[in-house]
Design a protein around this nucleic acid. Structure first.
Lengths: 156, 156
DNA sequence: ATCCATGCAAAGGATTTGCAAAGAT
DNA sequence: ATCTTTGCAAATCCTTTGCATGGAT
């Protein structure tokens, strides 16, 4: 399991390798993004900005955007659209991959992994003449029981 | 196979059922959207607007947006994001479903269908306590042969 | 000392909306 | 006649960028 500190280290490596600099803001954004308390969140830039702001009121919106772009470049963040008009980001665990199920009743985002689907995706890509480099899969569904009683958590 | 005229009929039904009105613009947009010559396209609003404009210079941008929203409501259009900052729409065939493979070299969008994946998606949803109502799956991959020689068609 | 990063505000691009005029039932 | 739709422009939302200042190596 990648801790927030590990993530900061990975970012540091990426930055120095590219002649860029580690800064207090970049570290703070990374720490907040990887905070285990929000592990299952899929925050928007705004949500992350608010969390960062509560720790340092001077950080600008653009810095959060720019840092998230950096984190994406070094595979620490994964941007995804869940049918809304804004990008959500989730912390990446190296070597792990999961897809998402969105509850049509309460918009909760539930993570899952299915190795059989992943394998089939590679096969399909190959049959089409490609080497699979990435994929996005989002399932939408109605909960069998009402959300109140089920595991759905309203993310916003 | 749903023809453009069939689509117009479906739209008419939807409109009258909802106290809305068929208009020349709505019919034109629908015809252009379902034009068999562009069957495999996944046009953006702008691309569609340009095609519509070439037939009737007086149609407004907003009308194309609004018509596409109506078509989506009656399941004649399916909006999807392919990692760009704009929505692409594809004509829907009732009872048919396909997913997409995007070429990372030339951005060609290739359609495919895989029944095994569809089945697994339903199983996964069920196991999570949902009835699958929709899904989006986009694969990204590098072409085994360079695009020039392979089946990739540059869509834009 | 030299570059890079920051914060702000302005710009950008996609999409939506308000409104007066035109159109459909 | 009534209510909807249209086209235009303005507004909105998310995201990116330019620039002067502050910060990291």
């Amino acid at each position: 399991m990648l801790t927030a500190d590990d993530a900061v280290d990975v970012l540091k490596g990426y930055l120095s390798k590219n002649g860029l600099k580690m800064t207090g803001q970049r570290e703070l954004v990374t720490q907040v993004f990887f905070d285990p308390e929000h592990k299952e969140d899929h925050p928007t830039v705004e949500e992350l900005y608010i969390r960062v702001r509560s720790l340092d009121t001077k950080v600008g919106y653009a810095t959060v955007y720019r840092t998230l772009k950096l984190l994406t470049e070094c595979n620490l963040a994964n941007p995804t659209r869940f049918g809304e008009n804004q990008t959500r980001y989730e912390p990446e665990q190296p070597g792990e991959h999961h897809d998402h199920m969105v509850c049509t009743e309460c918009n909760a985002i539930i993570e899952f992994e299915d190795q059989r689907i992943e394998e089939l995706q590679e096969l399909v890509a190959e049959k089409l003449g490609f080497v699979l480099t990435d994929h996005k899969m989002v399932l939408f569904g109605e909960p069998l029981e009402s959300c109140a009683s089920s595991g759905c958590r309203r993310p916003d």
